[in-house]
């Protein structure tokens, strides 16, 4: 522990960052999608005749909300599999 080269340090920081990043970055989209689904289910139960339109709009909105989680996943995948900082040292 006395001497730690920069590659090891970057690896440690990368792993910690990836774990916290994916954990924190999926909370907000999950809550947003939950709210969207809850509202859509309420509306469908209240007006079953417009369920078709609501379902289409809900799927589009879910895709747009989910893309934020996908961005986080992409950053985490880059950090783990193709870390640009590690290439600089090795």
């Amino acid at each position: 522990m006395s001497e730690m080269d920069s590659g090891t340090l970057i690896t440690i920081v990368t792993i910690i960052t990836a774990g916290f990043g994916i954990a924190l970055g999926t909370i907000a989209p999950a809550m947003a999608e939950g709210r969207a689904v809850a509202k859509a289910l309420e509306s469908m139960a209240r007006q079953p005749e417009s369920a078709r339109n609501i379902r289409t709009t809900l799927l589009i909105a879910m895709a747009l909300l989910e893309s934020t989680a996908i961005y986080v996943l992409l950053i985490v995948l880059i950090l783990i599999f193709a870390n640009p900082l590690l290439d600089r040292f090795f």
Partner: peptide, 16 residues
Amino acid sequence: LSLTLRLFGNIISTEL
């Protein structure tokens, strides 16, 4: 960009 990354991210994440 978001169209690209949504498709790619979903497929790569389920494969992973």
